[in-house]
Write a protein that binds this DNA or RNA. Sequence first.
DNA 1: TAGGCAATCTTTACAGCGTCAAGTTAGACC
DNA 2: GGTCTAACTTGACGCTGTAAAGATTGCCTA
Lengths: 200, 200
Amino acid sequence: MTRSDNKPYHHGDLRTALLEAASSIICESGIDGLSMRRLADQVGVSRTAPYHHFKDKNALLCAIAEKGFEHQDAMVQELMDKLGPDQNRQRFKRWVRAYIRFAHENPETYDLMYGREIWKRGEPTESLQQVSRASFRLWVDLVDHMQQQGVLSCQHPALKTAQASWASLHGLTRLLIDGVYLDRTDLEEIAETLVDLITQ
Amino acid sequence: MTRSDNKPYHHGDLRTALLEAASSIICESGIDGLSMRRLADQVGVSRTAPYHHFKDKNALLCAIAEKGFEHQDAMVQELMDKLGPDQNRQRFKRWVRAYIRFAHENPETYDLMYGREIWKRGEPTESLQQVSRASFRLWVDLVDHMQQQGVLSCQHPALKTAQASWASLHGLTRLLIDGVYLDRTDLEEIAETLVDLITQ
DNA sequence: TAGGCAATCTTTACAGCGTCAAGTTAGACC
DNA sequence: GGTCTAACTTGACGCTGTAAAGATTGCCTA
């Protein structure tokens, strides 16, 4: 078959292009708006071309989630470095706010990172599991530090406390991105209340 | 067209039959396993017959979620009545455990009740909204009571405290049903830790 | 008891989905 | 130049939600 258009047969960097297009589709149409066919159309390749770079749709979603973890970690980390060593309670509150803000600005990515689409319905890539574990370790470290500074109770070990407090934060976040609490201002107050409840 | 089979043209109580079949399908195959076509097949009607009882799939899911709220409320309420008036901390812990147990036993229903499928992707029925608000009011009442008994802090008003604490509980529950923490025993410990964090 | 209406149910069809199988193209290496 | 392989296309299958239009029935009224 002759190739009338000037588009080359091989794309060159299809994997990257797919990831970028997928992020953009998810951003404006949500996860439901992302289909392998629509994605392929947008990039300008055949409908099954993406399958040479991602085993299936689940693998593509895992890759997006992975990028999400990196983004979130970088953002939160950078924010923490700005604070002096003596403002620990501030530091904790700031982390909570940054966490919620990230989810608010990237709700669909957050859903992929911590939602059932990948973790229950599909199955997380080995690579994704590593990244997510590393991300959680950041939280455990922070909690450990907060315990030593007396911001959080030492009644339970750092790991358990980290699990429990992160679960709380995650719950609050989910309410926002799942549309149960739509009001962001309202949610900020609840977050404030939550931190007061948890910290001592 | 002659009706060779003895099945009558009108089902009689199709709405109820659909709800029961849908619950059963969800129970054994998850929400993803529930399609309008499969549902209709199972009940033995044509594929579009269900649309005469539910506007669309969203309406069907809302009806299932509604039944879920009633089930959960009844279960928790019954459990609370068994306790004497002086065991308030016990009462609180028991509620938390019952809440998590319900979600563990009915993960797909829980997801419908509090998940994005209905609240963000679709839109909750007016009827569902009422039932869910009533259910949340039960929680606010409990929190109010716990504040008066000194189990929970009075630093913030009952509503805010109820929102924050329920968000925590919800977060923990989601981790379980979304497959992030698979170990139920592990989760019980975290729940214990959470209650210790929140109560004073 | 007959007529008509509204509720219920069926048939048919459409556009979309994920992905498998088989064929085509092009670049890379011996 | 020949061969191997990765990248890509074409075509197909079975699944999805649901709109449109026709068939059947129970019920209510005259």
